[in-house]
C-alpha cells in the first residue's frame, strides 16, 4: 500500500467517524463538561449571570441530609432490585432455554413486552392499578378481607413496591442476557453428563453454574448500573414521596434543577457530579467485570 493510499484511507476513516464524534460530543461530552462548570457556579438557569462560587455547592450538597437520604434510597433500591433481577431471571431463562418447552417464542416475547413499553406509561398505569381506594389490587384484597393497601403512599411499602415494578419492567432484558449466556454452553456437555448419570441438580451445579460464572459478573455489574437510572418510573409512580422515602438521587437533582421556585442549577449540578462519580465507580467495576469474565472464560477453555 502506498503512502498516498494509506493517507486516503485514514481520511475516509475520520470522515466516517465525524458524525459520531460530533453527536457524541454535543449530546454527551459537552453536557458532562458543562455540568462540571455549573457545579462551580451559582445560577438559576433564568438569569444571564453565573457567579463563580468554587466548591460552595459541593459543601451545601454534602451538608444536606436529604442528599444523603437520596443516596441511601438509591443504594437500597439497588440492593432490593439487583439480586431479584439477576437470580429470578436466571431461573426463568433456564426454563425458557429448554428445547422441550412448548410456545417458547410466545413466552419469551411475553416476558419482553414490558421492556419495550414506555416506562412513564407503566408508572401512570400502575398508579391506577395500585390505587388504594378504587384500584383492582386493593379491591381484590378488600374482598379477601385484607383491606385496601396504600402501596405507593405508605412509607414502608413505597420503595419495595417500586422495586417489584422495576424488576417486572426490566425482567426481559436480563432474561435475554441469560438466554444468550446459556446458549454458549455446548449441549453435548449436558448429554455427556446425563449419560454418566447426572441428575438435574448436578447438571446445574457442575455444568451450568460454572459455565455461567463469567456472565454472572458482567450481568450483575450491568444491572447495578442500570438501576441507577430509574428516574422515569420512580417519578411517575411516587414523585419521590411519601416524605422522600423514594427520592432517588435523580429525583433529588431534578427537584433542585427544575421543581424549585427559583431553580438552583449549581446545587443540582454538584449533586449530579457526585452521582456521576458513583456511576463511574460502578463503570470501573464493570470494566473489571468484563476483564474478570474474559479471564475466567479463558481459564475454562
Amino acid at each position: 500500500m502506498t503512502g498516498r493510499s494509506v493517507r486516503l484511507r485514514t481520511t475516509w476513516i475520520w470522515i466516517f467517524l465525524v458524525p459520531t464524534v460530533v453527536l457524541y460530543g454535543v449530546y454527551t461530552i459537552y453536557p458532562i463538561i458543562a455540568s462540571y462548570w455549573y457545579s462551580l457556579v451559582e445560577w438559576n438557569g433564568f438569569d444571564a449571570d453565573q457567579k463563580f462560587v468554587g466548591l460552595s455547592n459541593y459543601r451545601e450538597v454534602f451538608a444536606d441530609p436529604l442528599f444523603w437520604n437520596s443516596f441511601k434510597v438509591t443504594l437500597f433500591f439497588m440492593l432490593l432490585v439487583v439480586p431479584a433481577r439477576v437470580l429470578l431471571t436466571l431461573l426463568l431463562a433456564m426454563v425458557l432455554n429448554s428445547p422441550k418447552l412448548p410456545l417458547i417464542g410466545l413466552l419469551r416475547s411475553a416476558f419482553f413486552i414490558p421492556v419495550v413499553t414506555t416506562t412513564a406509561i407503566i408508572g401512570v398505569v400502575m398508579r391506577f392499578i395500585l390505587d388504594p381506594a378504587s384500584g383492582p389490587v386493593s379491591t381484590a384484597l378488600t374482598k379477601l378481607g385484607f383491606g385496601g393497601v396504600d402501596f405507593l403512599g405508605d412509607q414502608h411499602l413505597a420503595l419495595p413496591t417500586a422495586a417489584v415494578l422495576y424488576v417486572w419492567k426490566f425482567f426481559g432484558v436480563t432474561m435475554i442476557y441469560w438466554l444468550a449466556a446459556l446458549q454458549t454452553i455446548p449441549y453435548e456437555l449436558y448429554e455427556a453428563a446425563r449419560i454418566d448419570g447426572a441428575g438435574t441438580g448436578q447438571l446445574f451445579r457442575h455444568i451450568t453454574l460454572p459455565m455461567l460464572k463469567p456472565f454472572l459478573i458482567i450481568i450483575t455489574v450491568l444491572t447495578v448500573e442500570e438501576t441507577f437510572h430509574n428516574f422515569d418510573l420512580m417519578y411517575t409512580l411516587t414523585g419521590g414521596g411519601p416524605y422522600f422515602h423514594t427520592e432517588i438521587i435523580e429525583i433529588y437533582i431534578y427537584r433542585w434543577a427544575f421543581a424549585a421556585s427559583i431553580p438552583q442549577l449549581g446545587h443540582a449540578s454538584a449533586a449530579a457530579v457526585i452521582f456521576g462519580l458513583l456511576v463511574a465507580v460502578v463503570g470501573a467495576l464493570q470494566l473489571w467485570g468484563v476483564y474478570a469474565g474474559r479471564r475466567l472464560r479463558g481459564d475454562q477453555r
Partner: peptide, 9 residues
C-alpha cells in the same frame, strides 16, 4: 381522608 391522598397531586 381518602386512601392514597398522601400520594395525590
Amino acid at each position: 381522608i381518602m386512601p392514597g391522598s398522601n400520594n395525590f397531586g
